[in-house]
Structures are given as structure tokens and as C-alpha cells.
């Protein structure tokens, strides 16, 4: 029987060196995906690099309004950070939707992103909010928009030896609001059949000047719907604009058909979820 080798380095450099030493090595953050996959035999055992002893991956800080969230910080801890929640409630709420209280105790945004599930809840919210991922590897560091990390179900753009160190959130623009909503067949503990993240910014007169709409679970990776954003920009986010935005979302869906949601249902609901999320984002933008 193969054995699992465990290392818990104290620095990013050591973690990168370990990851680079073995092409099958995996980062262990909260383990709420990785340990499930290992136990079900989906992942073969090899080297696991626990990154939770690295301060940078476990801390949240803000600098001039911009946030740096350690990739392995748990959902529970993000949710307890009142200042972060005030700036980016949609992102924090999306992370909070992941699993139960017990799962929240360990699950991280970095793990949610790097697991590269099409239904990952935090991803559309982070994409809409303009989050970036700081990646460290054998050749140093690079920063990319979070949507560039997952490339297909279960696969990321990270090269051997690379890991996500932190998620960065920009300084909150004035009169910006964002929100994430998902549709699940039950009320808790389920996987999204559609997720919608919407961020919008208003001018003094309440006209939308910038918007970003991202959908989860309706295609192999997160979908940024430019036509949905265009439908909002230049409007007062009135019914007509929301209608157009919802139609653009439905048109952008390329969902799977399964027992949890048919293609038709997912396509329709994508517009409904985006519309509801946009209304919450609008409320938040008006009060910011």
C-alpha cells in the first residue's frame, strides 16, 4: 500500500521547494476537498504539504483599503472579520455558504479556488469583486485575476511547484456593492446548480458606471458575462436593465444536464439568481 508523506513547512520558500520536488505533491489547506478525494481513492497518496504553519497563508490584513487574505484562512475566520465583511460582504457570504459549521472551521477560499470545481461558491463572488490570486513558485511570484486559476473541472493553471499564497481584494470603490447568490435543491449542505456574483458601482446620481457579472456551475469554469455587465452600465439598474442582464446571463450558460438540474432549469435560474444578486448589490451600492 502506498503511503502518504506529510510535511508542514514554516515558510513559502520551503513549501515551494517541497512542491517542486515531487510532481504529485499536493497542497493541504483545510482538507475538506483533498482528504475526501484521498479517502475515496480519487487521489493517489504521495506528498502532502500542509501550508497552515505558514503565517502568510493564515493571516488577513488590509493596507490602504486593499485586502490580502491568506490562501488557507478558514471561512469561519473570514466571517468573523467584521471589517472585511463590511467591505466585501458578497465574497464573505459566498465563502460562508461552503458546507456546514464544521466544514467552515477548515475550508479556505484558496482551496475552493484551487480545487477548481465548476460549482465552487466563492469563485464567482471573487471574480465579480475583482479579486486576484498571488502565486508563488520556483521562479518567484506572480499575480493573476482569480478566474485564471481554474482551467477545467479539477485542473488549475498552476505549474509544478506553484501555490496560491493569498487572495487580494482591491480597495472598495465608493458606491460599489456586490453580492453572491446560489440555487441549491436543499436549503443547506448542497452543491450549487447555479451561482451568480454581481458587483456594480454607481455615480452620485445613481447611474451604474461599472459592473461585473460572473456565473458558477453553468459551464466547466466560471463564466464572466460581459453582455450582462453592459446591460447594467449607463442605466439606473431599473427593471428593463435587469431584464436585459438576466437574458444575457441565460444566454451565456453552457450547463450540464443532471439529476440535480436540467439544462433548461439551470439556464433559466442563472438569470433569476443574477437578477436577485444585482438587486442586493444595488442596495449595498446605494448605502456605501
Amino acid at each position: 500500500m502506498s503511503q502518504l508523506r506529510y510535511e508542514a513547512p514554516g515558510s513559502v520558500d520551503e513549501a515551494v521547494a517541497l512542491l517542486a520536488s515531487d510532481s504529485d505533491a499536493k497542497v493541504l489547506a483545510g482538507g475538506t476537498d483533498l482528504i475526501v478525494q484521498m479517502r475515496s481513492g480519487l487521489r493517489k497518496l504521495g506528498l502532502v504539504v500542509d501550508v497552515k504553519k505558514i503565517d502568510e497563508l493564515m493571516s488577513v490584513s488590509s493596507d490602504g483599503g486593499a485586502w490580502t487574505i491568506g490562501a488557507a484562512v478558514s471561512g469561519a475566520e473570514m466571517n468573523e472579520n467584521a471589517a472585511l465583511k463590511k467591505d466585501w460582504p458578497g465574497v464573505v457570504e459566498a465563502v460562508d455558504l461552503i458546507g456546514s459549521t464544521q466544514v467552515q472551521g477548515r475550508a479556505s477560499a484558496g482551496g475552493n479556488l484551487c480545487n477548481a470545481s465548476p460549482a465552487a461558491d466563492s469563485v464567482p463572488a471573487m471574480v465579480a469583486a475583482g479579486a486576484t490570486a498571488v502565486i508563488a513558485g520556483p521562479n518567484g511570484r506572480r499575480e493573476v485575476p482569480v478566474e485564471q486559476v481554474p482551467v477545467s473541472p479539477g485542473k488549475t493553471s498552476l505549474a509544478t511547484g506553484e501555490m496560491v499564497v493569498a487572495i487580494k481584494m482591491p480597495a472598495k470603490p465608493a458606491r460599489n456593492g456586490e453580492a453572491y447568490l446560489r440555487m441549491i435543491p436543499r436549503t443547506e449542505m448542497d452543491i450549487a446548480i447555479v451561482g451568480a456574483g454581481v458587483s456594480l458601482t454607481l455615480d452620485d446620481g445613481g447611474t451604474c458606471t461599472a459592473a461585473k457579472v460572473a456565473l458558477g456551475a453553468v459551464a466547466p469554469t466560471v463564466v464572466i458575462v460581459d453582455d450582462a455587465a453592459k446591460a447594467l452600465i449607463g442605466t439606473k439598474v431599473d427593471d428593463a436593465a435587469l431584464e436585459k442582464m438576466a437574458a444575457a446571463c441565460s444566454a451565456a450558460c453552457k450547463p450540464i444536464d443532471d439529476k440535480r438540474g436540467t439544462i433548461e432549469y439551470r439556464t433559466k435560474v442563472a438569470g433569476v439568481m443574477a437578477r436577485r444578486a444585482a438587486l442586493i448589490a444595488l442596495e449595498r451600492a446605494r448605502s456605501n
Binding site: Y6, T32, V48, G105, R106
Partner: peptide
């Protein structure tokens, strides 16, 4: 609060 089935003993 966590699920001990999703934590390694070495952790």
C-alpha cells in the same frame, strides 16, 4: 469546530 474525519492525525 471541525470534522475529525477530514483532518489528518499528523495535523
Amino acid at each position: 469546530l471541525i470534522c475529525s474525519c477530514l483532518m489528518l492525525g499528523v495535523e
